[in-house]
Design a protein around this nucleic acid. Structure first.
Lengths: 127, 127
DNA sequence: CTTGACCTTCCAGTTACTGGAAGTGAGAAA
DNA sequence: TTTCTCACTTCCAGTAACTGGAAGGTCAAG
């Protein structure tokens, strides 16, 4: 399977797949013409990575998850710990964004947004 | 005011303040010894930037907000439009993170996290 | 006069791609 | 067979917003 088809089937851009190879995440075979060749196994991994990335796992997390995925003797506790840490980080980010949202939405709704210069948003930033 | 004191007073690391100068965001005077010298006016701007950054505005947004801050004849609509766009982006990110959170928290809570290999998290990623 | 804190510039690294240039291979139409 | 158009290859540069560190200058205290 050429990289174009692999991209299509995995939902990842070809550029990204090449990048993952460059950082040693997933290394396809090569055909005689030097084209990359993705097997079913590679495709499973690519899709695995795509899903993990879409859940916000870092590429390094993906590397770790991928090795746990391949390790049939893994302890689920190891997987859970990676996921739990990421979940906590997601919660931290949501809290941070929510607090930004609260402050900013107050400022925005207090601003008339007309052609006059007085502006609660600017005032709020200047304090 | 030296950069160390300016950092202290603005809540921004000295490194960051130098970086802002490098990208032309805020340019302090220089003393005879080539040390940076921050005036009260500079300090107001630094604090303004610090607050805008803490609300998640990009550095380019900060550049724009800063010029609106200085423009006493601005239209508040121009400020509001920058802020509104950012607010929408914050909402988009919160929604994205929330959806990640939903999926991941389900997987995590379904995983026993013991020393056995079967793992709903891995299964969910492998699908 | 030395010590230590603070300042200077410059360069490299971070994350995860993304765009583009230059060149090669494959398959189909003329 | 030539040509055309893709898809593929490698390599280099750029993105955002810093951050760390090296090598060296400045200043106040003791």
């Amino acid at each position: 399977m050429n990289i174009g088809a692999a991209a299509e089937a995995s939902g990842l851009p070809a550029k990204t797949i090449r990048y993952y190879e460059e950082i040693g995440l997933i290394t396809p075979d090569r055909k005689a013409n030097s084209y990359r060749d993705y097997s079913d196994d590679h495709m499973h991994k690519l899709r695995f990575i795509q899903r993990a990335r879409s859940l916000g796992f870092s590429v390094e997390d993906c590397r770790q998850l991928l090795s746990l995925y391949e390790d049939k003797g893994r302890a689920s506790a190891d997987v859970k710990s990676v996921a739990q840490e990421h979940l906590t980080e997601i919660e931290r980010k949501i809290a941070e964004l929510s607090s930004m949202h609260d402050v900013l939405s107050h400022l925005v709704s207090a601003c008339r947004g007309d052609n006059r210069p007085d502006c609660p948003i600017i005032d709020g930033l200047a304090k």
